[in-house]
Design a binder for these strands. Structure first.
Lengths: 189, 189
DNA sequence: AACACTAAAGCAAATTTTTTGCGTTAGTGC
DNA sequence: GCACTAACGCAAAAAATTTGCTTTAGTGTT
């Protein structure tokens, strides 16, 4: 996952990674974001700056790395008993989380990095996986559920887009988008 | 617009801004992006680094500034004779432009900056203005046109979202999204 | 047209960050 | 336990950013 944790001679990632990540999170709370420098993180983490430079390259990559870990949901989406209300509940929580100060920072951190590898798409995949879970749960109940890509495009995308462009959506609006998707699959059924 | 171009004693922006912008664009073409440094830009532009630092703060702000100017469309959207085909044509061009290498960089540059001011929302506003133009044109012809916010949320947002997350949409998909919006307003009419 | 006023730009020194070479240490597989 | 490899620490060198002060160029007024 973090690339070098595999079984190869010489690897030593776990400890350093943990303390650096912790240092980043601590400093991000303690001071304005642009004041968080690599030398400062290094000192807080008890490692040398060069370690961080060599391992992450720059602040952006490091921040993105931390952000992705925070994005990873710690619990599966709530089960409210019905497909549509499941999706609504998930969306409400997702939107709130993303619109929050830290949430926006995370999105930006991930997008900004996009150095070469697909760190950004990894982040999107996490969301998709959550939705797949909801879809599967619905299927298990014999309920209809919109295509996951459609949910991404018509519900998640506008939420993120508006957050990025500083004009957050309100709940009634994404509720409407969800309603549309369910209407559409109802027509076909 | 660029803040200091107003009528105030002491202003001197125009010349420096022009040469710095030009230098940025030239260097961005000539070398990998991370190799473009402020000192290099300063030399190319024939100004002192400190001038750039004081005026823009850092590379991100400067890049965003340049990107926004490039985003500003130089011609109004094509007139294809009908509201729906106008929107389709505009969307095709927009998506292509944004999905291109330089387009993606621009999006990122703008989003990354988001220092304090609403540079990002300015960028969204440019898109909105284009859509308003299409809507007005349709109105002039007596044709129905979807709500601009709906177009932003259901057509533009997924295009940008997918580009950011490195999984670009294909044409048939946004065509479908456009179709949905037109169906919806047809139902109400 | 000259004058006063203000903010931007130049310059250079001080500071901080980033890069780099090399020796050391810790984790892996045999 | 042994050999091997990559990550880390350390320190010097290079590059970047910041900062105080001076000079220069626009603006508005008389």
């Amino acid at each position: 996952m973090t690339a070098k944790t595999q079984t190869r001679p010489g690897g030593r990632s776990a400890r350093v990674q943990a303390s650096v990540h912790a240092a980043v999170e601590k400093l991000q709370h303690a001071m304005p974001r642009d004041a968080v420098t690599i030398p400062a993180i290094a000192e807080e983490a008890g490692v040398t700056p060069s370690t961080i430079y060599r391992r992450w390259g720059d602040l952006r990559e490091l921040f993105a790395d931390v952000a992705i870990q925070r994005l990873r949901p710690d619990s599966p989406p709530a089960d409210t008993g019905g497909a549509r209300s499941d999706l609504e509940a998930w969306t409400d929580q997702y939107a709130e989380e993303m619109a929050s100060g830290p949430g926006r920072k995370m999105i930006q951190d991930v997008l900004i990095s996009q150095g070469e590898d697909g760190k950004a798409s990894a982040c999107c995949d996490i969301t998709r996986a959550q939705l797949e879970l909801l879809a599967e749960r619905a299927r298990g109940r014999g309920e209809a559920f919109p295509c996951v890509d459609d949910v991404l495009d018509q519900v998640v995308a506008p939420i993120i887009y508006r957050i990025l462009y500083d004009q957050p959506l309100d709940e009634s609006r994404w509720r409407r988008f969800i309603a549309r998707l369910f209407e559409e699959i109802a027509d076909k059924g």
